[in-house]
Design a protein around this nucleic acid. Structure first.
Lengths: 105, 105
DNA sequence: CCGACATGCAACTCTGGAGTTGCATTGATC
DNA sequence: GATCAATGCAACTCCAGAGTTGCATGTCGG
């Protein structure tokens, strides 16, 4: 989970359909076929999105019999959020420092 | 700053070039032309990225004479981070609740 | 006023990603 | 073992966006 993996996570989160999938999974684990019944896209399209979400660690496959259900991993969102927070704080600190210098304090 | 604007922010953050721009701006405000000198892309390409970043509130234009410098807004990152944290926590709570039910507690 | 530099706008190419359809394959279940 | 549903894989279309070039506009200093 190094910082090189951060941008792909945002890319994965920058799609409305994937948020729909994540929201649906938030109500309980579900398979691609089950999700296809609730969302206005094909099962195959959902399967591709699930691959993307899995690659960035936002989702986890769980085999149940002959179907593959997917579980949301909330911890990955938390981790991403903490990194964002850190970066934002660094920028604010730097801006504050520059401002102080500019104002001659 | 409603939740409809959240996905576009992630879409904006899901691009390596835009992170390069944000990183460069983190070292101090700069114009599109100045950034073009440091990054391996054209000024026009950078200008488009700056439009995107500005539309989601991650960056702010400041006219200085005849040039237009851009400033990073760290607070917007912090806001986004807090929302992510909240969503992740909700998912984790829900998962914990489901797990308890499943385990018969 | 005029040259030089910065920005703005428009048209174009090109690649990647989102979505579809169709078919093959696997695995329960009776 | 035959069947049916779920998944997996492949090829295709389509469009948004990342990047480029070219030119027009604007604005500062001499």
């Amino acid at each position: 989970m190094t910082s090189e993996t951060l941008v792909p996570v945002f890319a994965a989160l920058g799609d409305e359909t994937r948020w729909s999938i994540l929201a649906a999974l938030g109500e309980g684990d579900a398979s691609a076929s089950a999700l296809a019944g609730r969302l206005p896209v094909t099962r195959q399209a959902i399967a591709k999105h699930l691959v993307v979400l899995q690659e960035v660690g936002l989702v986890e496959p769980v085999r149940v019999g002959r179907e593959v259900r997917f579980r949301v991993i909330g911890a990955q969102l938390g981790e991403t959020a903490r990194r964002l927070e850190t970066i934002g704080a660094q920028w604010d600190r730097r801006l504050a420092a520059i401002k102080e210098i500019a104002e001659g304090l």
